[in-house]
């Protein structure tokens, strides 16, 4: 038996060296001064208006894109699973979701600049054909709504990919049993289907939130450093110490872990509460 533990060594070594130690390093660094003495000053220094507003806009974008991604993705997944659409739509849509959910980062930014940028196809068409100048109306890709709109391009497909199997897991008989017991469609959804789906929905929401919260490449390629969301600030800090305090960078990164950690903590807690009825 002791020899069997040897089989776990490569994975453990890998996880410790390239996942756990680097993260711990950041966490510990957040509570140290440059000469190594323990301190809360770095974390307290996060509470300055510019950094707080960076967190705030990051959280807002992440919540908005995760929420909208969940809703729209759910609607589309429900359409192909329960909505009575032809069977052949399902396969291609799932494949496409696989592609789109991985089409993030720099190219995604390019795609939206080419579409909704000042010279983008949709911008031009709206202006030339319908006389609507979206930029005149205050639209800007480099804004809260702009970035949320772009993030949806990978959030929606991710939701579709995760929730489709869950929707498939809803047995037809549950719906029929509810119906023959006198329940209306909305009653069935409220009392049976949604409670059953809730753990999956919460888990996906937490995942989409973390996904958007940590995304750097899309925002950076889209905006350079002009939009101060947390990952962009951290990126600039790592590149050039723009905060003029290396340990404030640690605290900034630590704050990111805390936020995604809280999101997942809430998910785990809610899941434990909602999943009493499973093995």
């Amino acid at each position: 038996m002791p020899l069997a533990w040897l089989g776990m060594v490569p994975f453990t070594l890998f996880a410790v060296l390239f996942l756990i130690l680097p993260t711990m390093n950041i966490v510990v660094g957040a509570f140290q001064t440059p000469d190594g003495t323990p301190t809360f000053r770095n974390v307290l220094n996060l509470f300055q208006p510019s950094i707080l507003s960076a967190y705030w806009i990051s959280i807002r974008i992440s919540v908005a894109s995760a929420l909208a991604g969940c809703l729209i993705g759910f609607a589309m997944a429900a359409a192909i699973t329960l909505g009575g659409l032809p069977q052949w739509i399902r396969g291609p849509l799932l494949t496409f979701s696989g592609v789109a959910s991985n089409f993030a980062g720099v190219p995604l930014a390019f795609a939206f600049l080419a579409t909704l940028g000042r010279l983008g196809l949709v911008t031009v068409i709206l202006k030339d054909w319908f006389g609507i100048n979206i930029y005149g109306l205050g639209f800007n890709l480099l804004s809260f709504w702009g970035l949320t709109l772009v993030y949806l391009f990978f959030q929606i497909p991710l939701m579709i990919l995760i929730i489709t199997p869950a929707l498939d897991g809803l047995k037809k008989e549950w719906r029929e049993a509810a119906e023959i017991l006198g329940a209306s469609g909305p009653q069935y959804w409220r009392m049976v289907a949604l409670p059953i789906l809730l753990p999956s929905l919460l888990g996906t929401f937490a995942l989409l939130f973390a996904n958007a919260f940590g995304a750097v490449a899309t925002a950076y390629a889209l905006t350079g450093s002009s939009l101060s969301i947390v990952p962009i600030v951290l990126f600039a800090q790592i590149r050039g110490d723009v905060l003029q305090d290396p340990h404030l960078g640690y605290a900034l990164a630590f704050g990111m872990i805390v936020v995604t950690g809280i999101a997942n903590g809430i998910y785990v807690w809610l899941r434990a509460r909602t999943e009493r009825w499973t093995r």
């Binding site: 029929e176 009392m191 059953i196």
Partner: peptide
């Protein structure tokens, strides 16, 4: 398949 609601 019984079709009991598993969440209740």
């Amino acid at each position: 398949s019984y079709a009991l609601f598993p969440n209740l």
